[in-house]
Nucleic acid binder design. Structure first.
Lengths: 156, 156
DNA sequence: CGGGGGTTGCACATTCTGCTCTATCCAGCG
DNA sequence: CGCTGGATAGAGCAGAATGTGCAACCCCCG
């Protein structure tokens, strides 16, 4: 993974403040030449520093106002096939493998409580899934953010 | 919240496939006029359909290879002040209020195990926090995605 | 029938982009 | 010490994209 230097983080910060700003605007803002910014941007695009655009889409706008986290306990030998099956469920928007008391943390979005019930059912149907504990998300109290990390990098 | 129609979702899909494509390119791809795309994009920007650019930044590239989820139990009356304090910790990149057995699901990034230990310490220090259960993320088995939801919208 | 919203086509001046070439600066190395 | 590679800056150019304004159109709804 391409390690970022101070210029890169400044670039990312500027982008965070205005995601649609042009290269020249960025260059001016950061006191760099247009060429430099362009080179950095290409490098960022090419590397895997940036997640796909998906991440910026708010599922609420897509008609899925409810978010839930489901802790899944499973037979670990089956992890691979289970993840494959879960991938087929569109409402599952993310899943992390975990160490600790549960094996999988699944994030789902849904239209309402009935929908959530249906989806947990789908998860429980998978062979190898032993238990699933659902927690409804009551709000994103701290929205995802990388800004504080970027700013710390600045001052370092 | 602005409800998205089929044109919007097609636009978002196209953007997901190429986040840096220009307005004209999008227009051509979708068979729409440049004006239309431009209008839609402005609307999307103005509404809260899109999360900030932050979300696309991979903390690994920033030097935080470890991710952990921490389930926090707390005195609910103190929720507000606790969230405020947690906001001051840069490594906390996200937090959701939960219904269910725990009150708060906190997502942290860190450089190594010691760093994680330090951060859990910071969380436990907050007044009103009763318990914190840490689970290390072993991998993002299903990376965040909105694409399946968008595609479903297409065919609906 | 008369809007209003969304869409379209067109045109204009301005700005941005991608690309190339050159030159400078600096750190690392033989 | 001199060389080399990498990052940066400056300039220039043709082509493309952008922002903007405007008139027209279609279609659904009241």
């Amino acid at each position: 993974m391409h390690k970022l230097d101070r210029t890169d983080t400044r670039l990312l910060l500027a982008l965070t403040e205005d995601p649609r700003s042009t290269i020249v605007a960025l260059a001016e803002k950061l006191g760099l030449s247009r060429n430099t910014v362009q080179a950095r941007m290409s490098a960022l695009d090419a590397s895997n520093v940036l997640h796909p655009f998906d991440r910026r889409i708010n599922p609420v706008a897509l008609g899925y106002p409810l978010t839930a986290f489901i802790s899944v306990h499973l037979q670990q030998q089956q992890l691979g096939t289970i993840v494959e099956k879960l991938s087929d469920i569109p409402e599952i928007v993310q899943a992390h493998g975990l160490s600790g008391t549960s094996d999988l943390l699944v994030r789902v979005v849904c239209t309402d409580a009935d929908d959530l019930f249906r989806i947990t059912g789908l998860i429980l149907e998978c062979e190898g899934v032993e238990r699933a504990e659902t927690s409804l998300a009551m709000g994103e109290l701290i929205p995802f953010r990388a800004k504080p990390l970027l700013e710390r990098e600045q001052n370092a």
